[in-house]
Design a protein around this nucleic acid. Structure first.
Lengths: 318, 318
DNA sequence: ATGAAAGCGCTAACAC
DNA sequence: GTGTTAGCGCTTTCAT
């Protein structure tokens, strides 16, 4: 009927009719049923998104960028979190696809066999983020977590550090974290340096507390270490506080570097050398890519993000 | 057909038939269409949730608790964030209701006139969280942000502090923050103390940086202050770092208290006195309340949460 | 244990 | 500018 048209902003209804309809609807407490609309039009207005954890400022920023950009076009995010677990991701992807999203965004390029197949088979845009997969399923918006560690190691080496350690999580689960660990090792070897000072701080994601514990272990195992690369700013902050507790001056005794440009890093004392991964931009550019594909506009294709080292007070010349 | 039944775990299909169907479906890349299912059965499996910000550990914990509890029953969260803005909340509530959620959870008890009406009219359970509204729309799971400040002020007074200040946001927008500010004033007055040392640190939510700036302002305006109550741990941590930068010892010179029991507060030096609001429990109990209502089980009705003061190293006897 | 018929509340396509 | 018809892909109900 005309009622249906009255609820679509652009359709042809006389102003008086529309106003009367909307007024009556409000009085009756009528609420438009998008379930039926979605079924008939075969458009859900959903973009499915999986992230490892809801409680992580980086992924929250990405989702914020996605959501803000997509909501301008009245699209809504359907969010699921995987707990850094690919089996859970598979389960989630299947569940999300049943809702008939118009695109799906996943974090990372590592998935179960079946999840890959689901994503390859589905007839909507698939975007992998926070990574730069060798064989993308569809598109990606991200960077190489392995390559990015090169900048941090170069930074420390340029400052004269040679004995450099790495604090990260257990190798399983968080594939971005393990990639960074591998990147650290590769970068150290490229400089001809020893890459065996690796502290496993526990099950990813590493908390501040675990970062602190790892630092204590590091000091015990390798007391002559000059610099510490941490898998995230949270771990780095934990390491920093452990030093503070032990009365060890940073950066005088140890230089410390983090990852992710979390707010804590620019407020704490000393401020934290880190790498900005442009979390929000990842979300915004992913959203734009999706809109371009759906519009049939010439899409940019894949988007490489170039993370940026931010040198702050926690690192200095040996 | 039988295919439909094969996809419902509990329905009567012969094992062989079901297996054959599922196998064929997998081969064909068939994905169950919940849009159609939802329309016909008039059940969406959605619970709509609005939170002020996605990038906040407290609300993330609440959503985590909600999501984990609801996913056991195959219900999914449809999340929207309001940016601490009631107009945005109204827009969001309307949009979410169109998806026909089976319950709706909002943060706080302050809404626009129209949002209240929408929530009152809708025929699903409505739960307000993180607050204890005088006139709940449906149910609530939360606590009084005003009353809770009493514990913090009592704590400082018991330690011998008399000149106590408050750092919070501008009064608009964040109603929980303003309630805490009012609670601080009321508690101070109850002790017969001066309640005019109020620093407005900027537009809510207050960042660590803004907390630091506010502390600088506080030191300038009221240098003889003995204790500082902050609207959140993030602001409190900012205040702490400002003291560190200025070489002012905490808690020797100032006692500092926060709110929310964020991870930073138990790792930083000195550790932060705070109030645990049981964010995750709020989510879990909200989810349980929803399930009880939908099941027709005797629901508990409203749930009062009793936040707990955690005294740590940032506060001590004057 | 399986099948047939009807319909959930919208919208696409086509009249008028 | 408005009405009519048909159908999106499931589930409900009833029959076999």
């Amino acid at each position: 009927m005309t009622v249906s048209r009255a609820f679509k902003a652009d359709s042809l209804v006389s102003p008086e009719t529309r106003e009367a309809i909307l007024k009556t609807a409000e009085e009756l407490g009528y609420v438009f049923d998008s379930t039926a609309s979605n079924l008939r039009s075969q458009k859900s207005g959903f973009v499915a998104v999986t992230i490892p954890s809801i409680n992580n400022a980086n992924f929250a920023d990405t989702v914020g960028g996605l959501s803000d950009t997509l909501s301008k076009r009245d699209m809504q995010i359907l969010l699921g979190y995987t707990n850094y677990n690919v089996e859970e991701e598979e389960r989630l992807i299947e569940q999300l696809l049943r809702r008939k999203p118009e695109a799906i965004v996943v974090t990372g390029g590592t998935h179960t066999e079946r999840a890959r197949k689901l994503l390859q088979t589905v007839a909507i845009p698939v975007i992998e983020t926070w990574d730069m997969p060798a064989h993308p399923i569809g598109h990606y918006v991200g960077f190489s977590n392995r390559a990015v560690m090169r900048d941090m190691v170069d930074h420390f080496v340029a400052l004269g550090c040679r004995r450099i350690a790495f604090i990260g999580g257990d190798v399983q689960r968080d594939s971005r974290g393990s990639e960074r660990r591998l990147g650290f090792i590769a970068a150290m070897q490229a400089h001809g340096l020893d890459a065996t000072r690796l502290i496993a701080a526990g099950s990813p994601p590493i908390s501040m507390r675990e970062g602190a514990n790892a630092m204590a272990k590091l000091i015990e195992l390798y007391p002559d270490t000059e610099a510490v690369v941490c898998v995230s700013d949270l771990a780095a902050y934990g390491a920093l506080t452990e030093c503070r507790r032990l009365g060890i001056p940073v950066p005088e005794r140890f230089s410390i570097g983090g990852f992710g440009n979390y707010e804590i890093g620019e407020v704490c004392v000393p401020t934290l050398t880190t790498i900005n991964a442009f979390a929000r931009e990842i979300g915004e550019r992913t959203a734009q890519l999706i809109l371009d594909i759906l519009d049939g506009t010439q899409p940019v294709g894949d988007v490489g993000i170039a993370p940026q080292l931010i040198a702050r007070d926690s690192s200095r010349r040996v």
